[in-house]
Design a protein around this nucleic acid. Structure first.
Lengths: 131, 131
DNA sequence: TCTGTAATTGAGAATGATTCCTATTTTGAG
DNA sequence: CTCAAAATAGGAATCATTCTCAATTACAGA
């Protein structure tokens, strides 16, 4: 598992692309976004850098939906909603677990909790209106 | 998307295998579990039936961890913990969102919420002790 | 119980996201 | 400016999952 040691124009562009959108994109989405400006960008580079950013804690994986891993540059805990109609992944504000529940779980079951991922399934605002 | 219309010995065995464990297994785990007793079982049949059970609401997907989709026969809402050390997926009792938060989200953001998946990352009891 | 048809299955090919390989290019400390 | 280490391109390889289709099986009706 390689670590980040140097900068590169492409590495910066990938992180900037991710932090410039709220769409929680996949590796391929980022690749297609950057390809016009960086014609010799390789898809492998996008995957490689996303993995390194993730390991470094600079970005997070939102999860795998429809076989595609989605990423998020916001690393503070927050929930997401995946639209079952259009597949969009959007932030869900204000959704969080009472921390007392986590503490209680750790004390009663002997597990250790590092982080929590909350994913709602439903319809995004646009698809809710059409329904 | 095919629907379940008939029974079969293999189909029953797959569901029974899943409901007889608390390990939230993958398709391949179930296949390996059943193969000795059903030598002509095909991995494709396991995948096919899991997909049909899922669509029928008889089982649920817990999520994709390490590239492998894990399934659960318990369909009532409950959270899970994925061990970052051994990869085990275990039930996390008592972890649930206050329903008022969901209601509030629906009213303020215009989304529709069908269900919720809560996944904790951390250490299972066994790995917590070794740490 | 027998029959016919539609559902189910096995086995392997196909798919598609992700990772690996390695020769080449780039970065950055000194 | 130099040079070793890090990063990259591009295409092959991997691996979970899905598809194909001929053969098998379930089961409603006779």
């Amino acid at each position: 598992m390689p670590t980040i040691r140097k900068r590169s124009r492409k590495r910066d562009a990938i992180l900037q692309c991710l932090s410039g959108t709220t769409t929680h994109p996949t590796a391929e989405w980022i690749y297609n976004e950057l390809k016009p400006d960086i014609p010799d960008l390789s898809l492998a580079t996008v995957y490689r850098n996303l993995a390194m950013f993730k390991q470094a804690g600079q970005i997070e994986s939102v999860g795998v939906f429809g076989g595609l891993e989605h990423f998020d540059w916001r690393t503070e805990p927050h929930a997401h909603l995946v639209c079952r109609c259009c597949g969009a992944v959007i932030d869900a504000e204000g959704i969080e677990l009472p921390s007392a529940l986590i503490t209680q779980l750790e004390e009663t079951s002997g597990v250790r909790v590092d982080s929590c991922r909350i994913t709602l399934q439903g319809l995004c605002p646009a698809c809710t209106q059409q329904a």
